[in-house]
Amino acid sequence: MPRAQANGLELEYDTFGDPARPPVVLVMGLGAQMITWEEGFCELVASRGFFVVRFDNRDAGLSTWLDELGEPAIPDIVAGTAEPPYRLSDFADDTVGLFDALGFAKAHVVGASMGGMIVQQLAIDHPGRLLSVTSIMSTTGDPSVGQISPAALATLTGAPATTREAAIEQSIANYRVTGSPGYPATEEFLRHKATRGYDRARHPVGMQRQAAAVAASGDRTERLRAVAVPAVVVHGDADPMIDVSGGKATAAAIPDAELVVFPGMGHDLPEPLWPDIVDAIVRATARSA
Rank of each mutant, 00 (worst) to 15 (best):
K106Q: 14
L156R: 11
D93I: 08
R164E: 14
G236A: 04
A151L: 15
D256S: 11
D256E: 13
D219E: 00
P270H: 02
K193P: 10
L9E: 12
D142A: 06
A253E: 04
H235Y: 00
R58Q: 05
P255S: 04
V232Y: 07
W65N: 11
A173K: 13
V261D: 06
A159E: 15
D243M: 11
F41Q: 09
A216C: 07
M137R: 01
S113H: 05
A215E: 05
R129P: 05
E39H: 14
G197R: 15
L273S: 03
L44I: 10
Q33M: 03
I136G: 07
G31L: 03
Q121E: 14
I172M: 14
G146N: 02
A212G: 09
D100F: 02
E165G: 10
A249R: 05
P143L: 08
G146E: 01
D76R: 15
A167R: 13
M207L: 13
I124D: 10
H108G: 03
R225N: 10
F51H: 15
M34K: 07
T15S: 14
G236L: 12
V78Y: 03
C42L: 10
L62I: 05
E258T: 12
P181Y: 05
R209N: 02
A213M: 04
G80Q: 05
P150H: 08
A101T: 07
G80N: 03
F41S: 05
S113L: 07
L30Y: 10
R220Y: 04
Y198Q: 07
Q210M: 10
P255Q: 05
R200P: 06
R164I: 00
G158T: 12
E187S: 02
R209G: 02
R200I: 13
V145Y: 05
S217K: 03
W37C: 03
I77H: 04
F16V: 15
A280P: 08
L156I: 14
R196T: 15
Q210S: 08
G128Q: 06
L102E: 09
A284P: 00
D125K: 10
P84R: 01
V52G: 06
V96W: 08
R225M: 01
L156D: 02
